[in-house]
């Protein structure tokens, strides 16, 4: 590659990187500015006198630590549950021949096509009938078993399709049953796909917005995205600096984890079998 082309490519990459980096940068720096500076013209790259006051307010105005914990544990439970459900059914759809498998797979796939807004009212009714409104159950059970897990099943199926049959044949000759083949042979090989599924699922749960708004009403039970929009004064006027501080707090830890583990993160996603 010529060095001139190299410079052009680097230039292009740098320019294109701006909209990806600047918002996060701006969010974090602005959260340390007083409100008047947030709207200053032109916007400053650094706060004139950084202050963490707004961060303190985040915790005094709402049970933010508790809300953080809620979001984290819900996302983790959902991730583990989804991995279990999706790898089992993904494996069966890819590897086990049983009557109606294709038809059932198509039936399950339709779940991929249903926006959560479509079913939220009946879901609300159902969980209400079971007395589970204002609990975390709907936010855990629906993603694991309902429409959101379908994408995970799909990814797992596509991955298991690419596994060489010979590996399983060997296990079968050793007298292993289906579950043992799945558990001891197929699943360990599926680590990249599981990685992808866990990332997708974690982020999906972490980002849920409509569902918590509809299902939860006690601040101690809120999740983070819901809490983010709560930093308003009693008449609905937004408290910008506090809102940005809270937003930063939700973003920074995940970003740090991501930067540290980015190789596994991205390569896990890349090797999902979504290739074909």
């Amino acid at each position: 590659m010529s060095s001139r082309l190299r410079v052009v490519l680097y230039g292009l990459l740098c320019v294109m990187a701006v909209p990806f980096v600047f918002p996060t940068w701006w969010m974090i720096t602005s959260s340390m500015k007083p409100v008047s500076e947030i709207f200053a013209w032109p916007p400053a790259l650094f706060p004139a006198s950084p202050s963490l006051d707004a961060y303190r307010d985040v915790f005094t105005l709402q049970p933010f630590a508790q809300q953080y914990l809620n979001s984290a544990y819900i996302a983790i439970v959902v991730t583990i549950g989804t991995m279990a459900v999706a790898s089992l059914s993904g494996y069966a759809f890819a590897r086990i021949r049983f009557p109606g498998a294709n038809a059932l797979f198509l039936v399950v796939l339709t779940g991929l096509l249903i926006p959560s807004e479509v079913t939220i009212v009946p879901l609300f009714q159902m969980f209400n009938a079971w007395g589970l409104i204002d609990t975390h159950w709907p936010l855990i059970v629906v993603p694991i078993l309902g429409a959101p897990s379908v994408l995970a099943t799909f990814i797992m199926r596509q991955f298991f399709l690419t596994l060489p049959v010979e590996l399983e044949e060997a296990g079968r000759l050793d007298g292993l049953g289906r579950f043992a083949i799945f558990w001891r042979i197929a699943l360990p090989l599926a680590r990249p796909a599981l990685g992808a599924v866990s990332i997708f699922t974690f982020l999906h749960s972490w980002n849920l917005y409509l569902e918590p708004i509809v299902f939860l009403s006690t601040p101690e039970k809120f999740t983070l995205p819901q809490a983010l929009t709560q930093f308003v004064d009693a008449y609905g006027g937004p408290m910008w600096d506090v809102q940005l501080s809270a937003a930063s707090l939700t973003a920074i830890p995940v970003l740090i984890v991501f930067v540290i583990a980015q190789r596994q993160f991205i390569e896990g996603l890349a090797h999902t079998g979504l290739k074909g």
Partner: peptide, 17 residues
């Protein structure tokens, strides 16, 4: 949340809750 106050209230009512 003030932002969605009436909406949330109605949703709860819709669910009989």
């Amino acid at each position: 949340p003030f932002e969605n106050y009436t909406t949330t209230l109605t949703t709860q009512l819709a669910g009989g809750k």
